[in-house]
Amino acid sequence: MANSFFRNAYTRMVEARERQVSRYVNGALLNLDDKTLESMGTSRAELRRKGANSYVF
């Protein structure tokens, strides 16, 4: 039981961090122009729909 508790806690922590990083990257990608985003196969509307935050480090 202890093994599964720690495994679940670790998995959830990693998933939360992945969501945070995804929002950060989407925020950074929103700074690119539309032509560059289109060449990457995405759009500004799609990035906003996925969620975007900008962080100041």
Rank of each mutant, 00 (worst) to 15 (best):
S54F: 04
N31K: 09
Y10E: 13
G51N: 01
M13D: 13
R23I: 06
E38I: 04
R12W: 08
R12N: 12
V56Y: 04
M13K: 15
N3R: 11
N31S: 09
S43R: 08
R17V: 11
E15G: 05
A2Q: 06
R12Q: 13
L30A: 01
V56Q: 09
E18N: 11
Y24G: 03
G41F: 06
G51Y: 03
A52F: 03
M40L: 15
T42F: 02
F5T: 14
Y10T: 09
S39H: 08
V25I: 10
K35S: 10
G27D: 04
E38W: 06
R19L: 12
F57K: 15
D33E: 11
A9V: 06
R44D: 00
Y10V: 13
N53D: 03
F5P: 13
R44Q: 03
F5E: 13
K50H: 05
L29I: 02
T42R: 00
L29N: 05
D33A: 13
F57D: 14
L30I: 00
R19M: 13
S4E: 14
S43W: 09
L29E: 01
L47Y: 01
S54Y: 08
D34A: 10
F6D: 10
A2M: 10
N8P: 05
R12D: 11
R44W: 01
G27K: 02
Y24K: 12
G41T: 02
G41E: 07
V14Q: 14
